[in-house]
Design a protein around this nucleic acid. Structure first.
Length: 210
DNA sequence: AAACGGATGGGCT
DNA sequence: GCCCATCCGTTTG
């Protein structure tokens, strides 16, 4: 007796990632991040993003190509995963044409599928978390989704890590108004309105930002 | 509700 | 040696 059908998900094509980065940051809202790992499939709906542009001092690519930022200067639609504060990994989607280093940071997801697996991965000091605490931050969602450094630089057009279109699942939350605020946790170019989120969505990392 | 500090390690001047 | 696109528990108002 099937409890729930799992939809066949198709990765978004390269053309999706080829739009201007600020537009892409908006268009990413509502799409589904999918990781098909050995432990199982987990899916989250993107509800919060931040753009990092080539002329933007807060962008890792601002000072040019280094071993770390190499993937940022490649084609759009690849993963850029970096290590932060000695403990966490943050997941980005590369944007902009080859040779220009821009990206979109994925800051929060609404957990859609594989919640038991997410809770297992995110378990903090033996305590089980609420659904809204699983992916409401860039460092949290990589843990919940099982995304680590081994996935840095992979093509998001293919398994095991990819994005699927907004209509891949029945829409849950009403109210899809997009809110634009300043970015969180940065000290350079902190006034730029480069953060995008679904207004009043309970799964975003914070309700503030401006 | 907001502010604060500790954990913890790679990247780059 | 300083800076971090963070998180979590504790303290303070």
């Amino acid at each position: 007796m099937p409890k729930r059908r799992t939809p066949a998900l198709t990765p978004l094509p390269r053309s999706f990632y080829s739009q201007p980065t600020l537009l892409l940051s908006r268009e990413l809202l509502g799409t589904y991040l999918v990781h098909e790992s050995a432990q199982g499939r987990s899916v989250g709906r993107i509800v919060e993003t931040e753009a990092y542009l080539h002329d933007d001092p807060a962008c890792h690519a601002y000072r040019g190509i280094t071993p770390r930022t190499r993937v940022l200067f490649g084609p759009p639609g690849f993963s850029y995963i970096y290590f932060i504060y000695g403990m966490y990994w943050c997941f980005n989607v590369t944007a902009s044409p080859k040779g220009i280093g821009e990206a979109v940071l994925i800051r929060a997801l609404e957990p859609i599928e594989g919640l038991a697996l997410m809770k297992q991965r995110r378990e903090v000091r033996g305590k089980t978390l609420k659904d809204r605490e699983l992916c409401n931050g860039p460092g949290k969602l990589t843990i919940a989704m099982g995304i680590g450094p081994e996935l840095n630089g992979v093509d998001l057009e293919r398994k095991p890590l990819y994005l699927a279109a907004k209509d891949s699942f029945p829409r849950k939350n009403p109210g899809q108004e997009i809110e634009v605020t300043t970015r969180i946790g940065i000290r350079k170019a902190e006034h730029q309105p480069y953060r995008f989120s679904f207004k009043d969505n309970p799964f975003v990392s914070r309700s503030k930002g401006l």
